[in-house]
Write a protein that binds this DNA or RNA. Structure first.
Length: 490
RNA sequence: GCCGCCUUAGCUCAGUUGGUUAGAGCGCUAGAUUGUGGAUCUAGAGGUCCUCGGUUCGAGCCCGAGAGGUGGUACCA
């Protein structure tokens, strides 16, 4: 027995890529629609760009001969130029704005949504393909532009269905810490980067851990050692006082920041910007609990030059085994004044925010905030192959009346067809056999009513004899009866 | 990238000291019920015991390497 069948491929999605079915897609679409409406109400125009960009347009992560796929999914075009799937929506905007600058109304305000791709290690809530929804203003250096972006983000989360207590935007300004470090004599770029990384871990490691990372370094429980920034103890104290300057109100934090910032042109500039943002947020009606100043917010992206924003979600959720689930950041953004200049050489101030749509959808689903399952169509039971044309006529009538309907196209018996309608969560099934046809009637089963009545029926004999939720009506009343059932179901 | 743990049916898992034909629950398919979902009962289908190599008369079980997953850590434009 030597059959040389070719090896069968294993049916599996690449890791970090997910299949999303109707329920998840409905949640995503609802979020996208709601957030887009908010962006449009502020005057942002819709823009879409292609999934690929030339790699040099995406920034410093140029594919090289050794590791062309580091961080991004890249491939070589037939003219040997490297192209890469976009890893966010900001870099393509910078490219577009630079390319079209002369023909654009300025400041240029656009929103965009779509998938982005990152070729990195996937984890829980971390995929290699996910949806973002961004709004950016290019060509305004007014802090009010930042404030408006923040206000839209806050409004967007509310529109997406998050309860007000479940999220907040935390706002910081890169210039504050930069100025503080200059004043403290820390000017080395590598050290500054290490300080940012240390500060970013405040919520996880606490002040002690951050102190260690600012100084000599830190050994974690597993024994791995992380080298510290190596700044002096005076600078360390200044940084700690700074990151712990957050207060309950924006004005309170500003006052405290003024005390600890140490006096430097850049730091003062940062303070002035935050102050203007604070004033604008007040006038835009953004509550103190929705947008607060938090000096420990860093954001990884190195291209941010001023204000930075991050949205945290505080939804309580538990996984399948009752363990608490953390969703982390569900959005972020900030000011990037140098990104367009990479192309044009001219400094072009810009600011924006990015919704993590996939994460937000996952969080909403896990928190049970979107319990609804998408309903199936009215199913026309195909009892008799000779009557198929009648079945399609019925489906057509229902569709014309605005009711989703489908004729069962399998070859199974009635039991399987009813099961099919049940699994699709259909509101109703239509049964037409020889009896109905002869009598000029149709039999309609209200599946929701049946689902309800089933709870009080223990034995199957009764269940089948009673035919709960089932009525037989004249053929002419079909559409009206179905409509009544469907409207009750929605 | 580094460290730990894990990998047996579609899913969750059990599998004795290394010993016959690898099991359970759930799910799936069908029947009990000529044209009726749920519940119940019955039956059936479903397996590269992650892969490769080694030890052994004999490996799901022991040893080695690799892959995948997972948790932590690093990185995250």
């Amino acid at each position: 027995m030597t059959t040389d069948a070719p090896p069968r491929p294993k049916a599996r999605a690449p890791r970090g890529f997910q299949d999303r079915r109707a329920d998840a897609l409905a949640t995503e679409r609802r979020i996208l629609t709601a957030v887009s409406r908010v962006y449009e109400s502020y005057g942002f125009e819709h823009l879409d760009t292609g999934a690929f960009e030339y790699a040099d347009a995406l920034g410093k992560f140029l594919p090289d001969a050794d590791r062309p796929n580091e961080g991004v999914f890249a491939l070589q075009d037939d003219d040997e130029q490297w192209m890469a799937l976009r890893y966010d929506l900001t870099a393509p905007l910078a490219r577009f704005a630079a390319e079209q600058w002369d023909s654009l109304p300025k400041p240029f305000r656009r929103y965009a949504y779509g998938p982005v791709w990152r070729n990195e290690k996937p984890g829980p809530g971390r995929y290699r393909e996910f949806l973002q929804c961004d709004a950016d203003t290019v060509g305004s250096d007014r802090p009010e532009a930042d404030a408006e972006i923040i206000a839209m983000a806050v409004e967007g989360y509310a529109a997406a269905g998050l309860p007000r207590s479940a999220y907040a935007l935390r706002i910081n300004n890169r210039k504050l810490l930069n100025g503080l470090l200059s004043a403290a004599g820390v000017n080395d770029a590598g050290q500054k980067l290490a300080v940012l990384r240390a500060v970013d871990k405040l919520d996880r490691l606490g002040p002690e851990g951050v102190t260690a990372l600012l100084g000599a370094g830190r050994k974690d429980e597993s024994g791995a050692f992380t080298r510290g920034a190596g700044i002096g103890s005076a600078a360390t104290d200044a940084v700690l006082a700074f990151v712990e300057a957050g207060r309950d109100t924006r004005a309170g934090t500003l006052d405290r920041l003024a005390q600890v910032i140490g006096g430097s042109p850049e730091g003062d500039e940062g303070l002035r910007e935050l102050s203007l943002i604070s004033g604008a947020l007040g006038r835009l009606g953004v509550g103190e609990d929705q947008a607060l100043f938090d000096p420990s917010i860093v954001r990884g992206l190195e291209y941010y030059t001023g204000a930075v924003f991050e949205a945290d979600i505080a939804l309580e959720a538990v996984g399948e085994r009752g363990e608490p689930v953390r969703f982390g950041s569900i959005g972020g953004g900030g000011r990037y004044d140098d990104l367009v200049a990479r192309f044009t050489g001219q400094r072009t101030p810009a600011t924006g925010f990015s919704f993590g749509v996939s994460r937000l959808a996952a969080a909403l689903a896990a928190a049970g905030a979107t319990g609804e399952r998408t309903r199936g169509p009215v199913v026309i039971i195909a009892l008799d192959g000779a009557l198929m044309s009648e079945y399609f006529a019925i489906a057509g009538e229902l569709r014309a009346a605005g009711v989703p309907a489908e004729v069962y196209l399998g070859t199974s018996g009635m039991r399987a067809q009813m099961k099919y309608a049940d699994r699709r969560l259909s509101p109703a099934a239509v049964i037409v056999g020889g009896d109905e046809l002869a009598a000029g009637t149709v039999t309609i089963k209200d599946l929701d009513l049946g689902r309800m009545l089933a709870e009080s029926v223990a034995d199957n004999r009764t269940w089948r004899d009673d035919r709960p939720g089932q009525i037989t009506t004249p053929r002419g009343e079909l559409v009206a009866q179905i409509r009544r059932i469907v409207e009750a179901a929605s």
